[in-house]
Design a protein around this nucleic acid. Structure first.
Lengths: 125, 125
DNA sequence: ATTACTGTATTAAATAGCTAATACAGTAAT
DNA sequence: ATTACTGTATTAGCTATTTAATACAGTAAT
């Protein structure tokens, strides 16, 4: 994994795992890689991985069978809610950020449309 | 100031100052509050404020007259570019984040439209 | 019971971010 | 030159994050 600066690694690992679930790479009931495997995959320490799992565990997204491993919850409703929460969180941050720069709601929508359109054509990034 | 967790304070102060400029509260050529005033305003340490100013200084957004203070550049082109850069950065992060959760471009636009519409009605935040 | 997996806990050390106190240096007015 | 502002630098100490090494504990197969 390549980590972003200025954001704790354990939060980035947590996000990565949410993504795996949201994308269906990890399905309800699936066993997660072991903490030691995850540590290798994510190029992080076991303790850091453990910390990333802690909050997911508290939220009920994953559950643990001691001696066996960690598993994705089978509560599909909770998974759907979680995805919705993550989407809304990002929306809120995005909108707040652009409003803080003085953009109106209409301008925000226009900026997004612009960005999505011009993305395919421009390669200068 | 109330700071978000998990993001260095000096980056948040930097963002706050960019906002002041983008919103026109600080105009080209204007003098910034002194580092000691800023430290009080932002409830941070002088050193942390100094660090926030460092990158703005490197980017040419502000300039320093030693013994007098810090000032917003008069280079309006640079200011416009900077605002555009900030907007694009936020767009990129937002789009990447939602794509990582499996949303298509169309779904991203729809989610934003939805969010902006329902914002006025819902007060449960 | 031994082996080989699981998760969990503890301790120590390195680093980054932040604060606090203090000192130094340039500007400008008196 | 003294006073009162500016920015800048240094030192020390605290906390959070991360790593590393090691140990302990549950599960399951041999």
């Amino acid at each position: 994994m390549k980590f972003q600066d200025n954001i704790p690694i354990y939060l980035q690992i947590e996000d990565n795992l949410y993504q795996e679930i949201a994308l269906g790479h990890l399905k309800p009931g699936d066993q997660l890689p072991s903490v030691r495997q995850l540590a290798v995959q994510q190029t992080a320490n076991v303790n850091t991985v453990q910390r990333a799992l802690r909050q997911m565990h508290e939220r009920g997204i994953i559950f643990t069978r001691r001696g066996q491993g960690n598993f994705v919850t089978t509560d599909q409703k909770l998974l759907a809610q979680t995805k919705q929460r993550l989407v809304t969180e990002q929306l809120a941050k995005f909108v707040a950020g652009l409003r803080d720069l003085g953009l109106s709601d209409a301008e925000i929508e226009a900026a997004l449309a612009d960005y999505l359109q011009n993305k395919e054509e421009e390669q200068d990034d």
